[in-house]
Design a protein around this nucleic acid. Sequence first.
DNA 1: GCTAGTTTCTTTACGTGTATAAAAATTCAC
DNA 2: GTGAATTTTTATACACGTAAAGAAACTAGC
Lengths: 225, 225
Amino acid sequence: MPQPSTPRKTLGRPPRISREEVVETARRIVAEEGVDRLTMRRLATEIGSTPMALYHHVRNKEELLVLLLDDYAARTLRRPELPAHPRERIVVAAAAIHEALAACPWIVEVLTADDLMSTSALWFVEQIVDGLVECGLPPERAVHGYRAIWYYTAGEIVVRATAARRRTDDDRATYREQVFADLDPDELPRLAQVADSWAPLTAEDTYLDGLRALVDGLARGRLRC
Amino acid sequence: MPQPSTPRKTLGRPPRISREEVVETARRIVAEEGVDRLTMRRLATEIGSTPMALYHHVRNKEELLVLLLDDYAARTLRRPELPAHPRERIVVAAAAIHEALAACPWIVEVLTADDLMSTSALWFVEQIVDGLVECGLPPERAVHGYRAIWYYTAGEIVVRATAARRRTDDDRATYREQVFADLDPDELPRLAQVADSWAPLTAEDTYLDGLRALVDGLARGRLRC
DNA sequence: GCTAGTTTCTTTACGTGTATAAAAATTCAC
DNA sequence: GTGAATTTTTATACACGTAAAGAAACTAGC
């Protein structure tokens, strides 16, 4: 009988910093000065250590950002009142996730995560999948439907955030104007027709409209709903 | 009468490299060795110049990648036969864009462009907008509909490409398995129900299903279609 | 107490994108 | 021709993420 009781202290040199401390300090830097100022060196000095020491607590900077996203989700995601009607329930759950993520655009670099797998987001995923099942989809199709909603949601945030970033660099906007000004109304009549209003139209926030359309389409032709 | 005829040669030191040469060489490097090997220094030596000289022909590396994407689109996008039925036309046009982009995953880093504004992609945009108008949407709603389709399409590609990239790093997959194994079936019954099949389900390519649902939803309740 | 094993931390170094400043190569005004 | 203006190219330098090697601080077995 080897080690029955004695919990035997951990082996090796005792750590002076913890993963929690790393994430918490990173969170503070981002909150106070923006994500651009979060560098491994800066984080290390802030924490009183050296850059490479961090790498014993997070695999790399990308993992650190994922941890920050999880942390952010755990802090700010609040479960909303959900309507009884399943289709509307899906919309409310997805919109809640969207709202939380859109409010923190620095997250974009990580947002391309495969799924939102922070445990605090799982409840929302459950609601969406469950709503789709209640709409009459078999469970596998419901998962596919959730994925479609996630693609749409993540895509909206990433595209809009990148557009906003590029708008400060500007000049790409000018290029787009040029493209629209040079449109041949014979070859591309619809685009020529909306050319002038393209910029304001694409600036509008129509996430909810698109989401409703997608959910309607997913639930269409099903028994219930 | 100042300069009436004489076209007067361009001022300043004559360039030794051109933007076209930069883009073309970059394209070759990416084609032959992958996007990871495309660095400004490598590109410069390949072209017989110095890194900073490139910055007189492209604003920065991101713009270079955008130019590469435009170039790729111009080369590979072929206009498919379009069905007469407007809804199916939209699906075919969007799927063609999706297929071209999905085939070149290195593009992901740029894909978050505001729109696909390469001139060779505009014809597809026209088809989608026009299809939506034919479905009975007013032009503004049609533009919004196109945007929704673009969000969905870009999101799908970005999410899947990132997932693939992380899968080589692995270990995030393991974490996800852990999350699903620890699910409380009382609190999250649907997820617990599909926990085992989550990975294979999310690996399936269901882009077309989601696209059809979205287009159906966008066109729903309209006069025509 | 000593040595081996194990973990964490530090040092050093490399390759990256690109800012900045200076040099080089040309045209234009006279 | 000479000097100013203008454009492109080069040289140098910085901050970044992180790989690699080894030093430091601890426990376990003897």
